[in-house]
């Protein structure tokens, strides 16, 4: 069962590993990234940040969608953390999910700030708008105890 899908370029870090995982009661975190394995230092950091008693699985976008569709993840309380907006949007659409948490993306010159630590390009903004039009609840929330911030796209 998927507990939550979140966009967070930092993948596994304090807010994810501690706050969200414990609040969601997640026993497995899926990191959806096509770039992590290219960088040994980042991979090592993820391994060091692994919270005790929780599985951490790393897969690319396509493989993540395939794995979830196949049913192998059904037995888990799964917390999905996507490195990019694009990856999250594809996953949400393919799996027909109805909720997307925006937790953090990198800033950039051509990007618009949607709220604290969340910046999107025009293309990403359009993708999120499309999700909203399909009645997906897209919101900003850094930690579970802060309020969900609805975004207007």
């Amino acid at each position: 069962m998927i507990k939550l899908v979140r966009v967070d370029y930092r993948l596994l870090h304090g807010q994810v590993a501690f706050s969200w995982t414990s609040r969601l009661g997640a026993d497995c975190i899926l990191l959806v990234t096509d770039t992590l394995l290219d960088d040994p230092i980042r991979v090592t950091s993820v391994k060091l940040a692994k919270p005790p008693g929780v599985k951490v699985v790393v897969k690319g976008i396509e493989d993540s969608i395939k794995a979830i569709k196949s049913g192998v993840t059904d037995k888990y309380h799964l917390f999905v953390v996507c490195e990019t907006v694009e990856g999250a949007v594809r996953l949400i659409k393919e799996l027909g999910l109805k909720e997307l948490n925006l937790g953090g993306t990198t800033p950039g010159e051509d990007k618009k700030e949607l709220g604290p630590v969340v910046y999107v390009t025009k293309e990403e903004e359009a993708m999120l708008k499309e999700l909203q039009d399909q009645d997906v609840n897209v919101y900003l929330q850094l930690v579970p105890d802060s309020k969900e911030l609805k975004i207007k796209l």
């Binding site: 497995c28 394995l37 040994p40 991979v43 993820v46 790393v58």
Partner: peptide, 12 residues
């Protein structure tokens, strides 16, 4: 020790 690859990570 820097360790690349999936060693030490999990699978479903």
């Amino acid at each position: 020790a820097v360790s690349d690859g999936l060693d030490g990570l999990d699978d479903f």
